[in-house]
Amino acid sequence: MRLRVYVAEAIRSSRANVAISVAATVTVLIAVLLLGAFIPTFLAVQSTIDDQKAKLDISVYIKDEATVQQVQGLQNNIVGLESEGLVREFSYVSKDDALAILREQLRDESVLDELASNPLPASFEVLPVDPADNAQIVGQLEGHPAVHEELGVEFEAETTNRFLDVVTIVRWVMLGLTLLLLVAAVLLIGNTIRLSIFARRREVEVMKLVGATNWFIRWPYVIEGVLCGLAGAVVAVVLLLALKLGVVDPLSDATDSGLSDDGTASISFFSLALILILAGAVVGAVGSGITLRRFLRV
């Protein structure tokens, strides 16, 4: 019974203060829009980093003339490094495997049919625990009799280091952006709520004089906050969907058509929308509920 009174009050009140309701809704809309654009970006960057990190492996190329014993010995060395905790895992890639992998990576396989014989060497693909240890691993394996004289043990020291630097910078930038965004959203929402409560100071004062309990006064405002939060979040989600369908999806389709297929993980739009709408409602409710406290002490 009470709930009906509260909801009716909330709707009445948001109608009576259209300008402020709109301001609150738009504020939530902007905050949610930023958040909604940011979360997938953050996830994509993180996933790209992980992806690239996994590619920072060491290729130990084996010369075609190496004997079985020599290859066995090389493998034992790598197993040794694994037990020292430097190597996470390794795998043997035969000449045929190497060709198959290349074939998979190329969209146009016909170029391979031109080859008379398989020019690719067999190799051990060694994945370090920490790419920063690559130099040490390379030092231990280089010069082994089974290792290919020209190709040797390959890892791109410069690329690895640069990549690790970039990762660090990207992490900090992301963290900074997140904080900045959060602060901006909180200030924006807090300001709007203060504005709306200020407009209602007199109303709240009168309600208290008539003998309304704090919660009787507060519930309609909380519900109103939820409604504004929900409205803002829903509009933001619709805008995000439009952005995704209109801009992001065509773009990522375009990049996917390159030579390789990358499997960057991303959050599904549905769960993202759900999180954002929920966040909007919570921000609206908590915001108006808390700010009202100051004015209830009459």
Binding site: K208, L209, V210, G211, A212, T213, N214, F216
Partner: peptide, 8 residues
């Protein structure tokens, strides 16, 4: 918390 009831 009882003040509202007084005011009624």
């Amino acid at each position: 918390s009882k003040v509202p009831y007084l005011r009624r």
